[in-house]
Design a protein around this nucleic acid. Sequence first.
DNA 1: CACCGTTGCGGTCATACTGTTCACGATGCG
DNA 2: CGCATCGTGAACAGTATGACCGCAACGGTG
Lengths: 233, 233
Amino acid sequence: MPDTDIRVLVVEDEAIAAEAHTAYLGRLTGFVHAGTATDGHTALRLLSAAASLGQPIDLVLMDMTLPDLHGLDVSRRMRSAGLVTDIIAITAVRDLQVVRGAVAAGIVQYLIKPFTYATFAQKLAQYRDFRLQLGTPSALTSQTDVDQAFASLRTPSELPRPKGLAEGTLAAVVDFVKTRSRPISSSEVMDELGMSRVTARRYLEYLAESGSVLRSPRYGTPGRPENEYSWRR
Amino acid sequence: MPDTDIRVLVVEDEAIAAEAHTAYLGRLTGFVHAGTATDGHTALRLLSAAASLGQPIDLVLMDMTLPDLHGLDVSRRMRSAGLVTDIIAITAVRDLQVVRGAVAAGIVQYLIKPFTYATFAQKLAQYRDFRLQLGTPSALTSQTDVDQAFASLRTPSELPRPKGLAEGTLAAVVDFVKTRSRPISSSEVMDELGMSRVTARRYLEYLAESGSVLRSPRYGTPGRPENEYSWRR
DNA sequence: CACCGTTGCGGTCATACTGTTCACGATGCG
DNA sequence: CGCATCGTGAACAGTATGACCGCAACGGTG
């Protein structure tokens, strides 16, 4: 459905970086590259042109360091112009003031260069989920619904590995879950990997929390329901 | 330390609501009520006055429905003026466009009226955590750090669920009931979700008790009448 | 129209099995 | 040897299930 595709404008002065972003975009479903601007004024012009043509840009990948304007200035001018386009900031600068300003300017994600494709994809996927949740008009019925939408925007997909989890064990569990196409329970991991149920569960739970595996209760048998975990690509 | 207290401006045209918000604020540590505005222009004037006095407002509790301007307009004008003050939106309107606009205008939290003090306190506490993480200049060293800071704005805990109800199961049932426009019986939930009738009924009954779902008996067939449940918006 | 058998869901338990917690033992590192 | 990190067993708590009984409407029957 091209109708629901998210139209993306890349704002980046370095040609190589701009091409990289565009290439990354092409690998994601649901996103369309709608143009590239190499400075702030061009970006603003493209944005209003697209809006008046009835094909507004949905999302801007905005580099913060531009030749003419700072990315934050571009964002602020967009807001002044009444554009509700969402913005993902891309920057090499880890500046506190910039982050604070970014939040105030309504920037939905903040990517620090250099980043891997995986990181890029995750941030955009989160944004896509966010839009999806807001996309259905009937969805917004309660505080919880709004909270959910905000959560998908702001929950990091990659949690730092907390204490109590060993790298080797984690790798073993990840490997095991990956090889099974069927959802598995913590008991199965216990049996197959020879670890205790407690340990198996701790790792699976961490993976579920970090979003790498899907968790859902398994019904049908007496007793407390068993959670089953399946690797999500 | 009054130095680190968060200075809050309440923007609300109804006196009773404004007082309530102020009273709520007083019960929280780390926040100071810095003033109240009953319309958008006054709010903007107070904000720039405070900023030029060197005592900028850190946070605005902004009602969306004001006599002169829409809350979103006030937010946009704040951004145009270069104010990095954070904003928590308070509104009775569950409007998709408003939520989208709110995100674009850099609104950090979105509270739907009416809300309990618990909800209010939770949202503000989350905001305080967010500031705390951005407050230490050395903290921002990696993508993970930024992610963590954003994450404190997400909803960490939901309302306390009574014992005996699993979070995942409840979510599944709520989701199922929501998607059906027709009233459904516990047997249908049993069949569709693969759980037992007892379990399905327990969750439906809880939802009916808590008021999010409507319950009424269904006549016309032999046997004891069946209760049917329908989502109430 | 009053009564009664039939029917099928409502409501309650004991039960079964897992999730969760806790304190301790094992392992590694300085 | 002391400290931090991790895995484990055991005890406790949580939660879905099957079975069972009772109830409320239906539909004959007199």
